[in-house]
Design a protein around this nucleic acid. Structure first.
Lengths: 230, 230
DNA sequence: TGAATAGTGTCTTTCAGACAATATGCC
DNA sequence: GGCATATTGTCTGAAAGACACTATTCA
């Protein structure tokens, strides 16, 4: 940062947009779980009636990450979830009204989190499967693409999947999260061998007897710090 | 992005800062090559006399990446080099004067590129080894840390090393680049086996006879698109 | 022929990928 | 016993890591 050149100091608008991901359980259907993202319906122009990422302006003296956390709470009703900065989108034409630079964050919320509509103060908020997105406002389609790529990549060499699961979970739940994000099936034995060998999981000693069939051992992540492996 | 909430629309200053990395040849000394970064000496307050990343304000209607390219040309005298967005730093206290959000980019320039002092219009610009940085203005130390981490990580699973080498180079040059970035020695045989097995290198058919000892075959990268492996 | 750098092969271990049968709990 | 899900082991091929000697050029 340097004040001695670059012409007039422009003051663009700066927003944060948050990609809130979850993996839905789809209890009712027999279908595999889906990676979903939370979107809100725009009540005003431009793009009135189109769906968009939850987001808003960064306030004076507000750190960027705090702004993202505020949007998460206000628009998705969640807090204390995994959050990381994704990318900054600043194309001058991305908002038809004026120059708006947006810092995109992505968040992971567990499946068992309270439902969107109940928790948010936004008129309409809804989960959409990544594979079936509605028409989106601004450049939000591209932002979501970027976020999905980051998530797909990062789940392969880190433990951030903890952000998508409840405290205690079955190994089959963990596998379903991976399959939903990667978009393909995984071999059960190889998956379990790999996950257990990483040393990031702890047995809780408890069993889950809620479903049919043999009860599964419940595991937890030993740490909620982000750990990279490979 | 959402205009219906978030209080007054603040208009912070937005800058780009560029981390220009190179690996210096250090021909004279027997020492291993160093990863270096280009810094400029600040001529005005705040932090007058301290070293800082080259950077400047984003102009009206200027895409962020164009702003980074402009700074690269103006302050480091290079163009057509590898450039990627790194991270956005927006802590309200990072500039003592006013709210300034900076989008950091990092660039890789080949060792044989024209020297900084000759090419730049900045009063003082200089290469500093990452291991021996001067006192830095603003939060630039943290920004550089973030950039070095990204570079260390990314060189392990991509071909971006092409950005640090001339068109034709010896495999030992490539190895030195890896060693400088990773900060430790690599086994020559394993390194060459791995690099050649990736299929990203082509023989030029030429040999380098400039140094002492047996002449080395010269290679080039088959593509300058970013390729990920592993 | 000595100095300097380039170039090469094998062994071992680890990890990924393919693959199917047995165990447990509930009705 | 039948159903549904959980849990477990082996083989094979690929890649990583450790390790040392020969080849080429020039002074």
């Amino acid at each position: 940062m340097n004040t001695k050149k670059g012409g007039r100091a422009q003051r663009p608008l700066v927003t944060v947009d948050v990609l809130v991901f979850t993996v839905a359980k789809n209890k009712s259907q027999k279908q595999p779980n889906d990676l979903k993202i939370a979107l809100v319906k725009r009540a005003i122009p431009p793009f009135k009636g189109k769906w968009a990422l939850p987001g808003g302006f960064v306030k004076e003296n507000e750190p960027l990450e705090d702004a993202a956390k505020r949007e998460l709470k206000e628009e998705a009703g969640v807090r204390n979830v995994y959050l990381e900065q994704l990318y900054t989108f600043g194309n001058p034409e991305r908002d038809p009204r004026t120059r708006v630079i947006t810092v995109a964050y992505f968040a992971l919320v567990p499946t068992d989190t309270i439902s969107l509509s109940a928790a948010t103060d936004v008129s309409e908020a809804q989960w959409f499967p990544i594979k079936n997105l509605p028409e989106l406002a601004f450049d939000h389609k591209k932002i979501i693409q970027t976020g999905v790529e980051r998530l797909r990549s990062k789940i392969g060499y880190s433990n951030i999947a903890y952000g998508l699961l409840p405290q205690k979970f079955r190994l089959s739940d963990l596998q379903k999260v991976y399959e939903a994000i990667l978009g393909h099936k995984l071999d059960k034995r190889n998956f379990r061998r790999k996950m257990l060998s990483l040393g990031l999981l702890e047995e809780t000693g408890q069993k889950d007897k809620s479903g049919p069939g043999r009860p599964a051992l419940l595991y937890r992540f030993g740490t909620k710090e982000v750990v990279f492996f490979d």
